[in-house]
Structures are given as C-alpha cells and as structure tokens.
Design a binder for these strands. Structure first.
Lengths: 345, 345
DNA sequence: CTGTTAGCGCTTTCAC
DNA sequence: GTGAAAGCGCTAACAG
C-alpha cells in the first residue's frame, strides 16, 4: 500500500538513487528532475521508510530524552522544550521516564539498550545510579545533562549555589536571621546536585552574615508541595520557629504557604517565603522566587546534542550555566519582632 | 564496535537464524543452544539493531504519543502513564507535542509523516483540525483517543457532562442559585469536547432545578490558572456576582481562588468554588473537585493500542468511559445571604 | 547530473 | 532443531 522509493523512481522515470538525492535536497540534481520527483512523490503519497534509511545510514534521527518524575513541573516544562527543539530539526524524541526511584520498582534502567536506537541523549537531572551513569557513558553517544554537570559529557544548568545565596541574601537583607531551609531528601541518590548545592548556598549566605545555620532549621521537603507542607509544619512547631523559609522549589514553597495559612500565620507579616523555579501557579499566588529558565535549558540541551551530531564545533560549550533572577513579589517582607530588636541593638 | 548478530552466531557456532530464534524465545530451539547463545550474546554485549529488525519485520515497536500543551497538568500526568505502560511492554514512546494552537506557528502537523515510524498512536485530547484528524485516520494504524471519542477509533475518557452535573448539583444542593461557569475558549477548535460537554452539564443541572443559566455567568478561562483568575475577576465584578463558581479544571479553579482572595472574599463563606481534575496542589489548598483518573486513562489507552496490535480481541472496548468522583473539601459551603432568603420564602 | 551496485543487520521461508 | 539464502527499503560509493 505505501509507496516505496522504487515506485517513485519508476513513475518519475529516474533511478532510486536520484529520487533519494532529490528528495533529500542533496546537490547534483537538476532543478527540473528535482521538481518532477517531488511532484511524483507527493502524488504517490510517498514517505521514506525511516527504518530503511536508518539501517542504510546508521543514523536514527532520534534522540532519547531521559527524565524522572515527568509529571513534575520542572520536568514537564523541560521535556516540552526539548521535544519542540528536536522535532523542529526533524528528530524524533524518544521519551524515557525513569520509574520514580522512590518506589521500589526502580530496578535500574539499562542505557545500553539504547544502542542503535538513538543518535544522542538528553538527560534531565536525574538520580541515576552510578552504574546507569556508566552505561550512558559507554553508549558513546553525544550526551547532554540538564541540571547537573557530569564529567565527560556536556551540560546545561544553573548555578544552584548562587540561586540559594540569592534567595537567602534577599531574606537577610530584609532583616531575617532565623531562616529555614526546605530542601531535598538527604538520602537521595547522588549526582542529583541541586538539593545539595542549594543547601550549601543557604549555609554560605548565612555564615557570611555571621549566622551559624541551625540543624533544626533544615528540613527535607522531597521537592513536592506536600513535602513542603510537612516540612513547614515541622519548622513552625519549633520552640523558636524561623521567621522566613527558603524552599528549594516553588512547589515546596506553595506547600509552605499552605502550612502557614493553616496555622493562621500571615505571609509575609508573620512568615516570609522564597521559592525557586518560576512556577506560574506560584507567581499567581504572589510567591517571591528565584526564577530559572527551564525551557531555555531544555532547548539549549537539544541544540547541543544536535550540533554535536553535526560535528559542528564539537563539544563547544561543554558546560553552560544559564543565569537566574530573583523576582520579589508578595511573600517576603521584614520580620516582625525579634529581628526588629536585633536591628536596633 | 557494536556486536552484530553474525558475531554472536560465529562465536556460538550456530547460524544467525538460530541466534535470532534463540534470543527471541521462539520455539524450535534446543534448550542447550538457547543457553549458549544467550550467554555468548551477553558476553559480547550484543543488542539487536532495532533498525534492522524493523526493516525486516515491518514492526517498529514504537507508539506515537501526540499531545498539546505538554506542560499542563493533565497532559503531563497522562503522558507519564502512557510512557510507563509502553516501555513496560518493550515499546518506544515517540513523543509528539503539537505546537500550542494558540500561537500562530501551528502550521498543522502531518500525521502521515508517521507512516512506518510507529505501529500505533495514542492521541491525548487535542484540538486537531479536521484534516489532521483525517490524516490520523488514513494512517490506518491502531489509534486510541484519550479524553474525546472520535468515530472509527478507540477511546478512553470520562463523562464530561456528568462531571459538570456532579459539580453543579453539589453547589445547588448547598443552596446556591447563582452559579458561574469558568470554561474553555468558545472559539477553540472543535472536537475538543470537554469544554462544551462540561458547559452543557452545568446548564442541564441548573435547568433541572428550574434555573435558567445567565449568559453573564459563563466566562472562558482558557484552562489556565491565569485565565481562571481573569474569568473570576470578571464574574465578581458583575452587579449580581455569583455565589459559587464551577471551574472546568482545577488549574482554573486555583485562579478563581486567587481572585477571591485578592478581592478580600472568603472561601467558602463568600464564594464557593468547585474544580475538576484532582490536581495535588489544589487538593493541598482544600479545593472541592470532581476527580478524574488521569493516569488510569493513559495506561488504559496504551494497553488498548498494544492489545489491538497483538490482534487480541480486536477493538474490544471501543469506547471506554471511566468513572469520576466528587471530593468535597473546604471550598464549598452554603451561600451566605441571598439564597438563604430564597430558601425561606 | 544520473544510474549501477553493493550492502546496512536482521528475519523468515524453505530445505535438510 | 538448524542452516542457507532471499529479501525488507533505502543510501552511498563509484562509474559514466
């Protein structure tokens, strides 16, 4: 039923080689034949067989997009951007969702199974285990990581330490001294650097202001709104609760907001909250946050793999760090009482 | 570098045909040779060339997943579910994001380009144009639509009219008479049935209670939180603002919540709000909603294509409708004044 | 500029 | 149970 290249060749009165060249826009084809071939191909509804051309060229025109928690805001945004970029260049996006490592079904994903199925790989900050990372490396395909930099591969990310410093500094400037940190799960797989880096930035900023971070002010939020809510409840139950909270993601920050509301605390009068991301729902709620360019990171990652495939300026920009921006809205303000006294002292 | 089937055959001292049969678990292979072959293959790190086997068999072991607005909650959830199901069955998920039809770059996607690239298609409720729909049909591949039923293809969805009735009935029971509806954009492409159906359900429920729907109470919200916010602002500026709002999605409902808060209205005392979906962020905020099983719809859709591919009970369950459930939380309560009077009359 | 001719790596009859 | 051989549909030298 589907026309093959030979059918087109016959109908156009040329060889299959010419049809192939004409349709792919290769040089050394007269305009007239190219026109004819295109017309005939269209008439016959001819579509090249991807399988056949893959086998013949060794190129798949597909890129694997590996991501965990694809339902989460960051990943959904990034995946959309990567996909759009790939498809625009005629590449297929092979989506690979890692099972939530939290559940025990995570029996490990074997990157080697990707051999011959894709030309390159985009890995969205993912808690890959060491052996999986190794597998990806052994694929020997152009690979770019988004959100974390891995030695030996390209990467696109933001400076997570700077992100946290920015957020924490903002709170410090406002006069806060008791600043809680709601971050990731400490027993999370490694090379998921964002949580650790953000924590480090929070600490660094505090210390720079002569404040020693209190262990009790550091609570894991699992990067979910629910986790943020629970973390905030824990923080707010403390004998000396923090007057401000820096949550490592907007989703967690929204959880913090809910916790505050439930306790009857007003934001920002009684509690200041800063997040990270640029989640539109958070923006609507007036959350002060450090925005990161998610779509840009995804698009750039896709471009890097594609460029690398074309052999253009190979491995250019091995590690790109995109800028972030503090957006102050309505969830941050000077603290009410305690720090006011401190300021006057 | 990558081992080919011939290498395995040679190393195992058998023919390529036998290797092929052994590795795929086909019958007519002695247990001993199967063992040997498997071992040798493993040793050599052999992975079948998807391209080659595709060309030879005509099957791609890939399914296209077409979705618009992949960043939105519903789609992200559904895509994750479809992908998980497919990969579990050894199928590749080829992600195809339609450009946001809202932007003008939507030059139409040509489904025919999928020919030979996938064995089946899962289409997530998408505003396909008539010709695109036709294209998908002409692909003559097993296709299942999620969220809308299209003639000639399988589908998995919920009863959107019932969803709206459920939500509206709940408000009516509470005593509300002025119930606004925040829905989709009226000038949206067709066969995006949810908005229209939900609107119909809202109207039907009202009429059933002898209330004639007021045009002014019906405002488009574009299915985004921002749109919901704007719509609510419009509703609340009315001379006689509604005492309750039914938003056709949780994201829009959250926008309504923000609008209410900005106006200093208390929810549910001054305004009741009901959404649709089961968005976890909305749950956290206590939103009363009609929950739909999104992951289940995605998983089922994937299963239907796969079954159809295996020729099992072809086209069984042509149109599956999954149940929804009203979850009452804290954003709905009896109206304060007006209806109280009415009730007493 | 265009045609001829080998494959790409696997699957699949059809014999043995 | 196993092997030989003929493709699957396209691309890529290499001639001409």
């Amino acid at each position: 039923m589907n026309a093959r290249i030979e059918d087109v060749a016959r109908a156009a009165g040329v060889s299959t080689a010419t049809v192939s060249r004409a349709l792919r826009g290769l040089p050394n084809v007269s305009e007239s034949t190219r026109t004819t071939v295109s017309r005939v191909a269209a008439e016959l509804g001819y579509v090249v067989s991807r399988s056949a051309s893959r086998l013949a060229t060794g190129r798949t025109l597909a890129i694997a997009v590996i991501a965990p928690f694809m339902q989460r805001w960051f990943y959904a945004q990034a995946i959309a951007a990567v996909e759009a970029e790939l498809r625009q260049s005629g590449f297929d996006a092979l989506l690979i969702g890692l099972n939530d490592p939290a559940d025990l079904h995570h029996e490990g994903f074997d990157p080697l199974s990707l051999r011959g199925r894709v030309d390159g790989v985009v890995v969205l900050t993912v808690p890959l285990t060491g052996s999986e990372l190794d597998g990806v490396r052994r694929l020997e395909l152009p690979t770019v990581y988004v959100g974390a930099s891995v030695a030996g591969a390209m990467s696109v990310r933001i400076d997570d330490v700077a992100v946290a410093r920015l957020a924490t500094e903002h709170l410090l400037q406002l006069g806060h001294a008791e600043i809680g940190y709601v971050g990731g799960d400490p027993r999370q797989p490694l090379n998921f650097s964002a949580p650790a880096d953000r924590r480090a930035g929070w600490m660094a900023a505090l210390r720079q202001h002569g404040i020693e971070p209190v262990p009790a002010y550091e609570v894991p939020g699992g990067f979910t709104a629910e986790g943020g809510l629970a973390a905030a409840e824990q923080l707010l139950s403390l004998p000396t609760p923090p007057t401000a909270v820096f949550a490592a993601s907007d989703e967690m920050a929204m959880g913090v907001l809910v916790a505050a509301r439930r306790r009857g605390l007003r934001v920002p009068e009684d509690l200041s909250v800063v997040g990270v991301d640029g989640h539109e729902l958070a923006a609507l709620q007036g959350l002060t946050t450090v925005e990161q360019p998610v779509a840009a990171q995804g698009a750039l990652a896709a471009q890097l793999v594609l460029e690398s495939l074309r052999g253009q300026s190979p491995r250019r920009h091995e590690h790109v760090v995109l800028p972030v921006q503090l957006t102050v809205r309505e969830t941050t303000a000077p603290p009410r009482i305690r720090t006011a006294l401190v300021t006057q002292s």
